[in-house]
Design a protein around this nucleic acid. Structure first.
Length: 429
DNA sequence: CGGCGTTAG
DNA sequence: TATTCTAACGCCG
């Protein structure tokens, strides 16, 4: 059975979501900023035209922002995730199997669709997402994931396709002409480093990569590059994965809005990140066997003394109970904290993660089933309240009072959470 | 197996 | 003055 995959990619996703609620920014350049309003994480076509790039620190393009009336938004993940859910739900009716690849992308298995009908089918999907969510999407259809990404690059270069392209039935020579138009560093899976190495071997385009000796590439680079070559030849090596795997690591880490020096502030931050990580852990129905903590000074301030320690702790019993994880994290923090440094970032990492059912009774009797159930019920209740009423409706004393967390990220330009908070609903007047 | 490097969105 | 965050995978020692 031949593989047929559709890639659905929301165009400039965060920007497009902001534009759904704000008609005045639909023709202006728009930027969505990272935490702390520091870097550009998403931008509209108009902003790209101005020369602004993804990842740029805001201060580097401030002059363009000022002179071209660029609209700025802090990132509003609650809103974007809600729109993502709506897009994925809309797409799910078009295929028996769907892989949600990222917040703005999905693959669908279209093996059931008559090949000649694929372009029309793609056009219908595009129109349906537009109607249900107001978001523009690209739809590309191919026999491998990598080729569907290639078709997506073609759509970016050639607007006359109007966002839909199927390359399932076109002859091999025509696919070659597409591949020849794409630079090797725009091939999915080839980043800056591998692109340089490939250039040094005389490989500059996707077509040259397809025709390269994959065994040499496996030896000189790694097996993922070999797979990419095969995928470009139409041999599917990266199957659709409809059921996301349980996470092996869960991290919560953030840059502070200002340098932090005191143990008190760092403790409140680490407690907050531990709570956030524990929440994610429970949402995966998992428990963690170890936790590590790191703190780091500002590496961009080369004249300042630098210090970036980390510490790990193994938990006697794997758990998803916030107080235990928090206590352990704070204990680890105490072991690495040194006075006299300006800390800029801190984080918590959970690992040795397993399904919550795998909790094994320990042989020495420290484990109490009734205590475990009490803890699980408490966490469940807190999670439900925070989900209904918003993050941090209930939080732990060790996190410090919300208003005292002056290190917490700046989000000065966040749009309302129109769809997930009752008091921020979109109002029609 | 842990640390490092690479990639992705 | 200012510089995101999270996760997976492969390789190597």
């Amino acid at each position: 059975m031949k593989t047929v995959l559709a890639l659905i990619d929301c165009r400039n996703f965060y920007v497009s979501v902001e534009r759904v609620f704000n008609s005045t920014i639909r023709t202006r350049p728009v930027l969505v900023l990272s935490n702390n309003d520091g870097c550009v994480v998403a931008l509209s076509e108009e902003a790209k035209q101005l020369g602004i790039r993804r990842g740029m620190p805001l201060f580097e393009c401030q002059h363009l922002v000022d002179t071209h009336q660029v609209a700025l938004f802090s990132s509003n993940y609650a809103l974007y995730q809600d729109f993502s859910d709506r897009v994925m739900q809309t797409l799910s009716v078009f295929a028996p199997r769907q892989e949600i690849y990222s917040i703005d992308e999905a693959w669908l298995d279209l093996a059931h669709v008559e090949p000649a009908q694929l372009p029309a089918y793609g056009r219908t999907m595009q129109a349906t997402v537009q109607r249900h969510t107001g978001l523009p999407v690209h739809v590309t259809i191919a026999t491998t994931k990598t080729l569907s990404k290639i078709a997506h690059e073609i759509l970016k270069q050639q607007p006359e396709y109007q966002g839909v392209l199927s390359i399932v039935t076109i002859p091999a020579e025509e696919i070659d002409t597409f591949l020849a138009q794409i630079s090797v560093d725009d091939v999915w899976g080839i980043g800056a480093h591998f692109a340089l190495a490939l250039n040094a071997m005389g490989i500059y385009t996707a077509r040259q990569l397809k025709d390269a000796n994959m065994f040499v590439l496996k030896r000189r680079l790694n097996v993922t590059v070999q797979r990419t070559v095969l995928e470009l030849r139409g041999v599917s090596c990266l199957p659709l994965a409809p059921h996301p795997k349980r996470k092996q690591h869960i991290a919560s880490a953030k840059t502070f809005s200002r340098p932090v020096e005191t143990l008190d502030d760092l403790s409140a931050a680490i407690a907050t990140y531990a709570a956030r990580a524990a929440e994610k852990l429970r949402s995966e129905r998992s428990i963690a066997g170890s936790i590590s903590v790191f703190i780091t000074t500002n590496r961009f301030k080369k004249q300042d003394p630098q210090y970036s320690p980390s510490a790990s702790r193994t938990l006697h019993l794997p758990t998803a109970f916030t107080p235990t994880l928090m206590r352990t994290a704070l204990d680890a923090l105490l072991s690495i904290y040194r006075e006299g440094y300006q800390y800029k970032k801190a984080g918590v990492l959970l690992s040795d993660i397993r399904p919550q059912e795998h909790l094994q009774f320990d042989l020495f009797g420290a484990f109490s089933l009734s205590q475990h159930h009490t803890q699980a019920r408490l966490m469940h209740a807190i999670d439900i309240i925070n989900r209904l009423w918003g993050q941090d409706t209930i939080y732990f004393g060790a996190q410090g009072l919300a208003r005292a967390r002056t290190w917490q990220m700046r989000q000065e330009r966040r749009s309302p959470r129109y769809t997930t908070r009752w008091n921020e609903l979109f109002a029609v007047t």
